[in-house]
Structures are given as C-alpha cells and as structure tokens.
C-alpha cells in the first residue's frame, strides 16, 4: 500500500485551519439539546405507549355503554386486566433496553442496542394491533348474534333480507378496521423507516464478513 503512505503522512500533520473552537464555544455546546435518533426513538415510543393506553381506555368506555351480556362483560374485564399487565411489562422492557444504550460501547453493540429498543416498541405495536383485532372480533360476534341488534337491523332495512343486511354490516365493519390497522402500520413504517434506514444499513454492513 505504498501509494497511501504519502497521504497518511499528510493526514497526520493536518491542521484544521479555520475550524477551531474556543473553550467558551465548547462550554456553550454542552448545554445545547441533543438531536440524536435515540432521543427521537425514545420520544416517539413514549407517544406510542400513551396512544395505546388512551385507546384501551376509550374502548373501555365504549364497552360499558354497549348493553352487552354479562358473560362478554366479564371476558372483556379479564382481557383488559391482562392487557395492562402486558403493557407494563413492555414499558419495563423498553426502559431496560433504552438504559443499556451507551455511546461508549463498540459500534456494533451500540447499533444492536438501538435496534433492540426499537424492536420492543415494534412488538408492542403488533401486540396492540392484534388485541385490537381480537377485541373487535369478539365484540362484533356478540353484537351480530344479539337479538336486539338483529331486530334493529331488520327495522332499519325492512326491504332487504336479514342475511344480506348482516353481511353488509360485517363487510363494512371489517373494511373500517382494516383501513384503521393499515393506516397505523403504514404510519409506523414511515416514521421508523426514515429514522432507522441508515442505521440498519450500517449494522448490516458491519455484521457482514
């Protein structure tokens, strides 16, 4: 590598001519705010945790107002309790992973820790979307099989057969939930895609032999 030697020598003697910060410049920088992606991931994750907690509260009140059978009410109660335990576990795990991130680690470990933190939130989101769909199916099942609802449906659309009205109601509900879930997942992909694209590439490149 003889060709590089002369460059190496020049490199060692380089002097950043016009870029030199004074003691005061540096001290001022210490009190500025960081804009690292770890900070962004932390904030976005907090928003996500809050978002899903709010959503489960919202669903709670919804379920209360629906005049449902006590069996369903109990099932939803148990599900909610389990849900909160799982959310707390996720938050604990996320916090533990977040705390492990250290800029003094080696490059590969640092990247791995960042990706791990993000992954926890990703699973949390998947879990919530799953729960949302599951809860939706359970509630829909009970509503669509309740006599009250079927009578109402028939009064609302006396000209159509009960079967076709029911099918229409199911299709509309499924489409609505599919659109909501689709939008949510797209939103996550977009945020983290932008944030982590470069990091993922670098991690891959470093890990390859």
């Amino acid at each position: 590598m003889k060709g590089l030697d002369k460059y190496k020598e020049a490199w060692k003697n380089q002097d950043s001519k016009d870029l030199k910060y004074s003691y005061n410049d540096i001290q001022e920088m210490l009190h500025k705010k960081s804009s690292s992606i770890v900070k962004w991931i932390f904030y976005i994750s907090l928003i996500e945790f809050c978002f899903w907690i709010v959503i489960s509260f919202a669903f709670d009140t919804d379920w209360n107002t629906i005049n449902v059978k006590s069996r369903l009410y109990m099932l939803l109660g148990i599900l909610t309790a389990i849900n909160y335990i799982i959310i707390i576990l996720f938050i604990a795990l996320f916090y533990k992973n977040y705390k492990t991130i250290s800029v003094s680690s080696n490059a590969q470990k640092l990247m791995k820790d960042i990706l791990k933190t993000r992954k926890t939130v990703y699973y949390y989101v998947l879990y919530n979307v799953g729960m949302l769909i599951f809860g939706f199916v359970v509630v829909m099942y009970y509503i669509f099989t309740s006599v009250d609802f079927l009578t109402q449906l028939q009064t609302a659309r006396p000209e159509s057969s009960l079967n076709s009205s029911l099918t229409l109601a199911i299709v509309i509900s499924v489409v609505i939930i599919a659109v909501i879930v689709g939008l949510l997942l797209m939103f996550y992909r977009l945020i983290y895609g932008v944030l982590l694209k470069r990091l993922k590439q670098n991690y891959k490149e470093l890990s390859e032999s």
Partner: peptide
C-alpha cells in the same frame, strides 16, 4: 481514544443527516 470512539459512534449511529 474514548473521544474517537464516541465521535465515530455518533457519526455512524446517532446522527441524522
């Protein structure tokens, strides 16, 4: 040495262009 490591880590993993 420590500064070097943190600087590289920041450039590679934390900094968003």
């Amino acid at each position: 040495t420590w500064t070097y490591r943190v600087a590289l880590n920041t450039a590679i993993s934390l900094y968003r262009k």
